[in-house]
Simulated scan of single mutants.
Amino acid sequence: MSLTTATSTVAAAKAPADPRRNELAAFLRSRRERITPEQVGLPMTGRRRTPGLRREEVAQLAAVGVTWYTWLEQGREIQVSVQVLDAVARALLLDASERAHLFALAGAEDPTPVVECPTVSPGVRMTLEQMAPYPAAVINSRYDVLAHNAQYAGIVGDLEALPPEDRNLMWLAFTPSRFHEVLVDHEEERHVMVARFRSGMGEHGAEPAWRTLLCRLRKASPAFDAAWQRHDVLRPGNGLKRFLVPEVGLLRLDYTSFWLGPTQGSRMIVYTPRDEETRALVARLPTRLPSAEGR
């Protein structure tokens, strides 16, 4: 072997691995070392030089080969199935956040992801009310409207009168609705919404609620299906929306998202006037939710 060839071979062997593999290896070791045999029903077998479980014990609990698990914890480039990752997650007693981190580092889609909780806390509801006179709503990454104030209802209509599965801005934008009617730039806005929905679908595609909504939209709206076929993607962001609201006028509103958790899931969107004319018109929006009118 020539000196050049030998040097290249050594360099290749020392080439840095995928950073995610190194992080995955370190993460697995840290989770393994925090678990005692008693926690997983294994007997103590003499004194241990290092804390936690041994690699062979994790392999036993996950029903995988010891050599294979050792390679995984060493950050080697091996193919990892979601079934094996699921078994390792259970063997290491990972919580929801740790499990999501494991699958992200492995570059795999979790077959049983944690479903985003649709509830809104009393504190968030109080904050929504305090946003008045500005319209505000809590929306998840699937565009479900989870909560809103009276001013928002004054723009998009009485959402409480709709079936729960229809209280979704994607559905309202592509089917006959008050939201579709008042949204001035609806063609442009709908393409943006579809691109952001597709971006979210990449992280939640295994969830039944997402797949059900996608199927409903494609069947109900040729316009949605055409936009979906473009494969455009866009992350959530802020911007301007224009609404032509009956008995109120043309509202030019900047919308700003305030995330309610550590991930881009549910967010509170607050609409603020772009100009003084809109500021005056916003005062004409209702101050009570339609569902409270009869109380």
Rank of each mutant, 00 (worst) to 15 (best):
R125M: 12
S141R: 12
V115T: 12
G123I: 08
Q130R: 10
A147D: 13
T127C: 14
V120I: 11
E129H: 00
N140S: 07
I139V: 15
A137K: 14
D144E: 02
C117R: 14
R142V: 05
Y134W: 10
M126R: 12
I139P: 08
S121V: 02
A147P: 02
A137H: 11
A147M: 07
T112P: 10
M126T: 07
N140F: 02
V145D: 07
M131L: 04
R125L: 14
T119K: 04
M131T: 02
Q130H: 10
C117P: 04
A132M: 11
P135T: 03
H148P: 02
T127S: 15
D144F: 01
M126I: 03
R142M: 11
S141T: 11
T119V: 05
Q130F: 08
V138S: 13
P118R: 01
E129L: 00
H148N: 06
V138C: 13
H148M: 14
A137I: 10
A147E: 09
A136W: 02
P135M: 05
S121N: 06
N140L: 05
R125Y: 05
A132R: 12
T112S: 15
P135Y: 04
P113C: 13
E129R: 00
P133V: 02
R142E: 02
A132I: 04
P122C: 00
T112N: 15
E116K: 03
V120R: 04
P113S: 11
T112M: 15
D144M: 02
E116P: 03
P122G: 00
T119P: 01
V145E: 08
Y143F: 14
S121F: 06
H148V: 11
A136T: 01
V114I: 14
V115D: 12
V124F: 07
E116C: 06
P133D: 02
N140R: 07
M131G: 03
R125A: 12
A137E: 12
P135A: 08
V120Q: 09
V138A: 13
P118A: 01
Y134A: 10
S141G: 11
A137G: 13
Y143S: 04
C117H: 12
V120W: 06
V124R: 06
V120S: 09
V114R: 15
L146I: 06
V115I: 10
A147T: 03
A137D: 11
E129Y: 00
V120H: 06
P133W: 02
P135R: 04
M126Y: 10
V114Q: 15
D144A: 01
L128T: 00
A147G: 06
E116A: 10
T127H: 10
Y143R: 01
T112F: 15
V138M: 13
P122D: 02
Y143Q: 07
R142N: 04
A147W: 04
E129I: 00
T127G: 12
P122A: 02
R125T: 06
G123H: 11
V120E: 09
Y134Q: 07
A147S: 10
P113I: 11
V115C: 09
I139C: 07
P118H: 00
